[in-house]
Every structure is written in structure tokens, then in C-alpha cells.
Simulated scan of single mutants.
Amino acid sequence: MDEDQIAHVADLPKVELHLHLEGAAPPALIRGIAAEKHVDLSGVFRPDGGYAFSDFVHFLSVYEAATGVLKTPADYARLTRAVLEESAANGVVYSETFLSPDFCGGGDLSAWRDYLAAIRETAEAAERDMGVTLRGVVTCIRHFGPDKARAAARCAAETAGDWLVGFGMGGDENRGEQKDFAYAFDMAREAGLGLTTHAGEWRGPAEVRAAIDVLGVSRVGHGVRAVEDPALVEELAERGIALEVCPGSNVALGVYRKLSAHPIETLRGKGVKVSVSTDDPPFFHTTMKDEYRNLARTFGWDADVLRELNRTALDTAFCDAATRTRIAKRLETP
């Protein structure tokens, strides 16, 4: 594939389903807010200004330290605008972002409503200005434990609707078990929310199986280590369970040593529904355009393949039918 074809692929309109709002914060924004509030973020940034971390556990601590400067709904409005400016610049026309009531008001429902209103109002203004549509997916934080997950699920259930469309779980996959969070996921399911959870990034195929069998999710965040169990891969394909794959993140964190070793092409070839996302893009030095360019160069994926992945992403998005129809028309752009 020549560079003109790769450039065309990178410019395609895109759907992104796996994006952590705080994890997408430009370092300059976090540094600026920290300076305004006189917060010392020593150790959070590298000399070149990027986020500094050595491994996944360290990444989580840096993530939470950076997030810690975001203390008010106004801070989250600024964050949302900055993230959507980056999404729009990368051709994203629809995005679902993970939001945690633990970070937005400490799990208090009244405070959560205030944060959510600021995020939503900013997103709606950004859609008018930049043409990128955002929807929210509440996430509980696995290493915060099941009790806080229930509080997060209550916040999600009480604010579910046309904008807050899903519930999921992020955090440290090596802490606890998927089954520990079944009550929270049952609450979200009863509220009509779409369900996803991180699984199969650090733990193996059994973690993915627990996600789909115990929690009953229709999407799995990452899920790539399912490839180690051929029977599970076949089941994912048969049941239409979608994987929110973040290739650049997986390589940056060392799940796979290089993109050519990543199983996304194998999974797609076996009929598993996969989409492409950036996860926490400034942490992992990636953008949606970078992901598309790298996939094109590594696997020879042309515009037809990536259009197919975007249609799959939209089909498995948690938005309502009217939004899906509207976004589908935008994906038809040559």
C-alpha cells in the first residue's frame, strides 16, 4: 500500500468506542490546571512533557494523579472540549467515552449529576461546532472494589437515557474477579444500559469468558487474549460479542511486543466483531489517524476493511437507533 492510500485510510470518518475521558486529557491541559491550582505533579510528566510511567500499575497511579487535578464540573467541561477537539481533528464522527462517578463527585449522585450536565452540555456544543457526536458510558473502577462499583452503577442507573448509554468496568484487571461486580452490572442492565467490561488484556481467555458468561456483556474492552482459546474465539464470533480493540495501547504497555504480533487480524479473520480505539491516547502516543495508518502499513488494511470495521463499531455502539442512522450516513463519505 502506497503512502497516498495510507493517507486516504487515515482520513476516513471514524467511530471510537473505547476512550477514557481523563486518559485522553492532553498533558498541557493537566499541567495548566495543576498550575492554576498550585498542585504539585512531580513525577507525572517526562522531561519532554509527556506522561511518565514504567508499566501498567505505574500507569494507573500516574493516571489517577493527573486526574486528581480535575476537581469541578468546570474542569470536566474544559477536559471534554479538549478531548473532542482532538477527536474531531482525527476524523472521529462518533465516540463513546468512559466516565467514572468515582472521579466525578466521589460517587455522590447529586455531585455526579452536576459533572454529567457539564460534560454533556460541552459535548453538545462541540457537536454543533465540530461535528463529533459523544455519548457516555459509566465505568466502575475494579481496584476500588465492589461496594464503590454499586455506587457507580446507581449513578449510571439514575442518569441513564439518550446520552448516558452504557455501563462498564475499567481499572486493574488483576484485582478481584468479574463475578464480584455482578450486582453492579445487574443494576445497570435493569436500567437498560449497554454493558461492557475490560477483560483479556492482562489475564487470559478465562477472564473474557467470565465477562460474557457472568456479567453478560455484549462488548469486551480489549479482549485480545481470547485468541489463545480457539473455542472461545469461535463462541465470540457465533454470539456476536464485540471486542473494543486498542492496538497502540496494547503495544505501548507491552501486552504485545510489536503491532505485527497483535492478534487483531487473526480475530477479524475468524469472524469476531472488532473495532479500533485509542484507549488513553496521549499516554500511549497515538491518535485514531495513527491507529489507521499503522494498521494499513502492518496488515495491508485498505479503506474497505476499515469502513467495515467502522460499520461494525456503529452496529455495536450503545446509542439509540436515530443516532445510529444519522452517524451511518456520515460513514458513507468517500
Rank of each mutant, 00 (worst) to 15 (best):
V220S: 03
F181K: 01
V227R: 08
V220M: 05
L215S: 04
V233F: 03
C155F: 06
H222N: 09
G176M: 10
A157G: 13
D162H: 14
R189P: 12
A156P: 13
A210V: 00
E201F: 11
R203V: 00
G204T: 00
W163C: 15
Y183S: 14
A210W: 00
R225Q: 12
K179H: 01
R189C: 13
D180Y: 02
A226T: 07
V227E: 11
V208I: 08
G166Q: 14
V233T: 09
R175G: 00
I212A: 03
T197D: 03
T159Q: 15
V214I: 08
G170I: 03
F167W: 10
G194N: 12
Q178F: 00
P205N: 05
P205D: 06
E228S: 06
E177P: 00
F181V: 01
L232I: 04
V233R: 06
V165P: 14
A160P: 13
A184H: 03
D213R: 08
D186K: 15
V227M: 07
A182M: 03
R209W: 10
L236K: 00
R209E: 13
E235H: 02
A199G: 04
R175K: 08
A210E: 09
Q178N: 09
E190M: 14
F181H: 10
M187E: 14
N174R: 12
G194P: 05
